[in-house]
Design a protein around this nucleic acid. Structure first.
Lengths: 337, 337
DNA sequence: CTCCTGGACTTAAAGGTTTTCGGAAACGTA
DNA sequence: TACGTTTCCGAAAACCTTTAAGTCCAGGAG
């Protein structure tokens, strides 16, 4: 805790010039003599002057601040997006105002008003799932970009991971390894993520002319369900040689149960997960081949697009961003290719 | 995207009063007639007027905004603290400006300047570990509170979890269950967290007059190390009946290896973890008894204390906050008390 | 010598809000 | 009527910065 903050007035006094000249010198404008500029800069340094962003914003109408509205406190998906966004912004001179609505629409409205009153230049809305969510863009004086969870309104700008494509890629990887009896274990069917991933799974199999092994098993996003599903599956369809799981949690439970049953991963059953949640995917035995949704990239892209929108150049629609298959030992053991 | 923002001037015009009167009406001040206030409020609602926080802040010198400076992008510890802080702030009308320094001192300085130029009312610094970190409070015009990772300067205000006390509580829990051959497996010794937890472990054993089973095993914070340690320990000290692990990751690996060796948890070996990282602690078999550091509470407390500091009433020093032992089946199976 | 040009600097306004202070009207009292 | 008091409202300053417009002066052209 130190002294009073210096204003440009103090700087100008100390340098013996008017505030206008001080402003010009500090902002690198033209009509100021080199010697004068030196004096002003020295004075500013001496007083450790920091221009008041409030006054500046009041005048320019731009705060160089964006609001980030999230709904999933737990942050499993929101946090990477947030980091990516913060990354893109931090590179420049933007700042991020963070708000967590805790899934409550009232609280969300409250936060939106607070952000607007702070005159943010734009808004990023991070969903807690890939299911479309109600739009908030109507009647807002600033542009909005949706990340991970898209807006229901196609006129809005949304960025989502390509779950369908990534699932297909994962299955193609299994097919390329020669697996032909591939099962699917996933989360609740009321998640769009579960439905999309199943669709990608089906598409890839259909394209290859391979039949699905057993029926899709829908449960919850937990290791427990993964274990349970593995036991059921090994009982009902003992000949399966691969499984595509809808999440790393499910996959982690699955490989554990497979091991306990005395079957080998990947030799007997290859397993692919989803999310690349490192604490799970790299710590299972064997480590999981899994889909990384590139959420940081998604967040960064959303942020960059928000810049464009602020500058008036928005490209509406739901943009799907590619995911990336991370190949580890659960499909392709070391030394085998 | 909608129309121009209304100013208090527009509201005043519409209501047929001066801006001074409009301001007083909107802020619930005294000397304005009830009928006039009604008119102003109606006008404000009609124009959906939002006072410009910049102008207000410029005048009052208070932005009702705080900066949150974090160093651990991955967010294992920072995020709950952040959420707690956001919670405490959000209840009022505060907003949080989030900055991630990525562990880089230069970037940190950069962020501090940016936050100061935005005239934040205070700063919360979230550490990535409980190891003391360099102070940034010198010569800052706003109060600073450190959360999770304390400042090196004892004149600063820091809030940290009580690792020593929590470890002792965990061990006392094991002692109360009748265990007497208790081992300790933890992370790298250059982490203060590892040293503190070991100290609590030792204190509790000493107080009970019980000897430690084997030597403390220091490794890394991973499941792999937990499994490895379990194998070594079961070999070297087969008579152990309990283990206190320095993290849930280690504990998760530990119980897994114990199970594989055919020993039962908790019947043969009781296991306590640390962190209450739910994806691990509730999904192991059996679910882990573990220490919850109450990080949300810690964040909330830090935020509340920052309020106090902004109002001029700071209480310097390192404040330790109690943790909470979450008892699950890895020490106390269902049906047994 | 006058006029113009251009450089270096200053004055003043603007941005939106709060707050102090003064003014005016209404009313009661002497 | 004159005056004091209360109640309500408006004018203007203040917060800090940027910028358009204006001032002043030296020097060059005519």
């Amino acid at each position: 805790m130190a002294v009073k903050r210096a204003t440009i007035n103090d700087v100008a006094s100390l340098a013996g010039v008017s505030i206008a000249t001080a402003s010009k010198a500090l902002n690198g404008r033209q009509d100021v003599r080199a010697a004068t500029r030196e004096r002003v800069l020295a004075a500013a340094a001496e007083l450790s002057f920091q221009p008041n962003a409030l006054a500046r914003g009041l005048l320019s109408g731009q705060t160089r601040t964006v609001g980030l509205l999230t709904s999933d406190s737990v942050g499993r998906f929101g946090i990477p997006v947030l980091l990516g966004a913060e990354d893109a912004f931090g590179a420049g001179e933007m700042a991020v105002l963070l708000c967590d609505a805790r899934g409550d629409a009232i609280r969300e409205q409250h936060h939106i008003r607070a952000l607007l009153s702070r005159r943010v230049d734009g808004l990023i809305v991070v969903g807690e799932s890939t299911d479309p969510r109600p739009s908030i863009s109507k009647d807002l004086p600033v542009p909005v970009v949706y990340a991970y969870g898209p807006s229901e309104d196609p006129a809005d700008v949304s960025f989502v991971p390509d779950d369908v494509g990534a699932a297909a890629t994962a299955v193609n990887h299994l097919l390329a390894l020669g697996r032909r009896r591939i099962a699917h274990v996933t989360g609740p069917g009321d998640y769009k993520a579960a439905r999309d991933r199943e669709e990608g799974f089906r598409q890839a199999l259909a394209e290859a002319g391979v039949a699905q092994a057993g029926r899709t098993l829908s449960g919850v996003w937990s290791q427990r369900w993964g274990r349970h599903a593995a036991e059921m599956l090994l009982m009902a369809e003992p000949e399966i040689d691969a499984v595509f799981c809808g999440s790393d949690q499910i996959a982690a439970g699955f490989v554990e149960a497979v091991r306990e049953r005395g079957r080998r991963v990947p030799d007997d059953v290859a397993v692919v997960g989803y999310d690349n949640w490192e604490v799970l995917s790299t710590e299972t035995r064997p480590a999981l081949t899994t889909v990384d949704m590139n959420l940081e990239v998604l967040g960064r892209t959303a942020a960059q697009h928000l810049f464009a929108a602020i500058d008036g150049k928005a490209t509406p629609g739901v943009h799907t961003l590619p995911c990336r298959l991370v190949i580890r030992d659960s499909t392709s053991p070391p030394g085998v290719s």
